[in-house]
Design a protein around this nucleic acid. Structure first.
Lengths: 235, 235
DNA sequence: TAGTGGTCTAGACCACCCT
DNA sequence: GGGTGGTCTAGACCACTAA
């Protein structure tokens, strides 16, 4: 994708990003200093700093003046309104039940956002916290990954972490549409809520660093036990 | 705040930012070229580009290779889940009805997010689209602005635009909490919805470029006519 | 005191856009 | 061809952090 003649700062950026994702640099660990990176790769500080700036923008590292550049906990910068919010908010007490495996399907109709084309995979799952179901989640994505992912391979049941760690695809943005609805019969049964319970219905598309690879999701959230949290802080 | 001995790139950043906010550079217009800015201010391109990078990060400008740096339509980069979403989605057909003027009040109790301290102003308003009320909105903010703002001075009924344009305060982040609820008697009346209508209840805090100046909001949204839109794209 | 990141200079060559 | 932004070099001095 990014050949040998891509800008040097991008090459260094991708090298370091890969090393962070593969755990060669662990969370909280310091990267080599800027001067050291200059010598190791035969670059000037301007170029090295440009690469590090990109890593900061993507939320991979933070800088500490007088100390160094430290690997940051992942996923903070794009914790928009997505599944991670639940996992992080509720800690380790999250269970995931797959209603369907990852399987060939077709793009959703009457989606409130523009939808993809071509072959498509889909899966549906329920997220529970402390045994209580809080979200029904249906997802679609293009059948372009190889090897084809299967749910049991998911890292921490997170599609995003799997994409990032195994396929080096980063989520770069998202568009969402939210509506309040009342649970129908199927939702009452799956989420174990009484009739008339208000839910938040979300349509979402996630854009990634790979063009033409967008993720689509349709969510129903029972927010009484756990409100949906959403934080955005400028990096 | 940022004195004469602040970094040169920050001084240039603030100068250009002010000129954009004051309309000296209009939306869609090109800024002076980087070389021109170098000469005008006696700086090198590194420094000028650093300033422009900050303006890009804040969503004030976009660069176009081979052409120039162009003033961007405001507010895109922080269009999280806020009032602007409604205004922008619905176009010019938005009305705002103030239930109360901006007046001294007290910080909300039982807010789902940490709340402010000290003297406080508040106001409550209803947003309608095409004559149909879609949102009840209550806001709190510290009584630190001078001159004290009044609702009739609001630029396009937007608190954010007023803060940015008149007080040079930028929103830098936000934290939100969403729940689905059912309309109670007051909401049924104010939003003109039947009993049992599901609404989205939002608690939100906006962080700004001025420390200790946070905005707090409590919203009830009727999403049947207009879903809540939310876009995030990495600058 | 030594090492780190933060800022800045004075150049250079390139790809892109428009005329 | 001339102007624009994109990349890069080879230095320099400073403020901050820790031993």
């Amino acid at each position: 994708m990014t050949g040998a003649d891509s800008p040097k700062y991008l090459q260094l950026y991708q090298l370091l990003k890969g090393q962070v994702q593969q755990g060669i640099f662990q969370t909280g660990e310091y990267l080599p200093s800027e001067h050291q990176l200059c010598q190791e790769h035969g670059l000037t500080r301007t170029t090295v700093r440009h690469a590090l700036d990109e890593l900061i923008r993507d939320g991979f590292i933070v800088k500490e003046q007088g100390k160094g550049s430290r690997v940051r906990e992942r996923g903070k910068s794009l914790n928009l309104l997505n599944v991670k919010g639940f996992s992080e908010a509720a800690g380790p007490d999250v269970q995931t039940h797959y209603l369907t495996p990852i399987r060939p399907g077709s793009w959703p109709e009457s989606f409130r956002l523009p939808v993809g084309q071509g072959p498509c995979l889909q899966f549906e799952r329920i997220r529970s916290v402390a045994g209580q179901p809080v979200m029904l989640e249906k997802n679609w994505f293009p059948d372009l990954l190889s090897p084809q992912p299967i749910a049991s391979d998911f890292m921490e049941d997170s599609f995003f972490k799997t994409l990032s760690g195994r396929y080096l695809i980063e989520v770069t943005g998202s568009k969402q549409s939210l509506q309040a609805v009342t649970a129908d019969a199927r939702l009452m049964k799956l989420l174990m809520v009484p009739a008339g319970t208000p839910l938040i219905h979300i349509h979402v598309v996630f854009y990634t660093s790979q063009p033409d690879f967008n993720l689509y999701g349709e969510l129903y959230c029972h927010t009484d036990p756990y409100p949906i949290g959403n934080t955005y802080l400028r990096p």
